[in-house]
Structures are given as C-alpha cells and as structure tokens.
Amino acid sequence: MPEILQYGFMQRALLAGAMIGTIAPVIGVFLVLRRLSLIADTLAHVALAGVAVGLLLGAYPVAGALVAALLGAVGIERLRTVGRLSGETALAIFLSGGLAVAVVVIGLAGGFNVGLFTYLFGAITAVQPRDLWVILILGLVVLGAVAVLYKELFAITFDEQGARVQGLPVEGLNLLLTVLVAVTVVVAMRIVGILLTSALIVIPAVTALRLARNFRSALWMAVACSLVTVLAGITASFYLDIPASGAIVLGGILLFAGASLLGPRR
C-alpha cells in the first residue's frame, strides 16, 4: 500500500476530497453559465460568520456555517426577486456583511484562534469521521436535487425568460439553486477553506465549458477536472508538505490554462 493510504487521516482526506470534488463543480457549471459565480464567494463569507458564532458558542461550527449560509441564500434571493437591488449589489452587501459579522464575533471571542484558521484556509487532514458523514449526506442532497430537477435547471440556465413563459416556477428554482450553493459551500469549506471555496466551485466548471460539446458532458467533464485536481492536490500536499487547499486550486488553474491553450478554438 502506498504510504499516503496508510494513515487514517489521509484516507479520510482523500474520501472527503472525492465527495466534495464531485459536488462542487456540478453546482459550478450552473453558476458560471448564469453569471452568478460571485454567489459562491458571498455565501462562503456569510458561512464564515456562522463558523465564528459556532466557535463562540462552542457548537459544531459546520452547523453554524450551514444555518448562516442558508439564511444568506434566502436573503439574497429575496432581495433579487423583489428587485430593490440588482443581483450584484445584493451580493456585495451580503459578502461584506458576512465578513463584518465574523470579524465582530471573533473580536468578542477574544481574537483569532487555530480553530478558525482551519475554516479559513481549509484543513483536509483534520477531517473527522463525523465530518465525512455530514459531507456524504449534504452531498447526496445536492446531487439528488440536481438529478431530479436536471431539465428544469437546464431550462432556467439556458433561457430564464423562456422558462418563465413555459410556466416553470422560475423563482422557486432560483431559490433552490441558491440553497444548493449554500450547502455546497459549507461542504467545500472543510477542504479548501472559506477563502478558496468558490475556486473549487468555479474553476473546474470553467475548464469544462471550454471543452464540452453539450450540457451533459459539461457536467461530467467538470466533475472529472475537479476530481483530478482535488486528488492530485491532496497527494501533492502529502508528499511535498504544502497546504492541500492551495495545491488543489493551483492545480485547477493549471488545468484550466491547459484546456484554454490546447482545447478547441471557438
């Protein structure tokens, strides 16, 4: 057995990485095509506020992150549908608001501690068996929702107005998608950290869009790109002693550059 598989924490790291690496890019393809990539980053910062509250209260920080991200998702969608704010403005307010709450709560808790840093930059080797179960369940929720509503999500992504004319519940589907992003962000933050979460969601998707010949293949390619970079990144972090999160995102960018240079010209 290779050395990397001899340790329980590395086994858990690879398992968690594989699961997150499957979920994140699926959501990413929809977000990138709808020009909503910034939502992932925004919800990650809102989730950080939840992590801070969780750490302050001594609760499970992932639960805090999930609650905060879901509230943020609903809030963003409401502001967008009511139309009082443009999508971008709503996102900017939530992003900075989430960060502000986090900073204040951290201050109340007496400053930064190690626990918080693992959420900021990711700590894949700190994944506990409990985290694996959380990732598995939340991941199945996300993939299940996409599988069941695949054709509806495609329709609103390709042409939202056309979907509306057809009589599809566009508002409901938009809210669902944002909620799925919130769940994905919470799942992904464990491995790449809140600061790099949107990279894991967006970069494999963008790479796949350069190569795909139809929508279904775009989803599969995004998952493939993501799995390659996540597993390679974790392996590199083990043998080269570098942070996994950084290695994963840099690997993803390299793959994107390769696809852009060598892929079909369009």
């Binding site: 095509l33 054709k151 495609f154 329709a155 390709f158 042409d159 056309g162 979907a163 796949a208 869009l209 795909a212 010949r213 139809n214 929508f215 279904r216 293949s217 775009a218």
Partner: peptide, 11 residues
C-alpha cells in the same frame, strides 16, 4: 453556452 441543438429543443 455548452448546449447541443437537441438539448435546446428539449428544453
């Protein structure tokens, strides 16, 4: 947009 003609029509 990475959609085939058939996927677009099906939508």
């Amino acid at each position: 947009f990475p959609a085939s003609v058939f996927e677009v029509v099906m939508s």
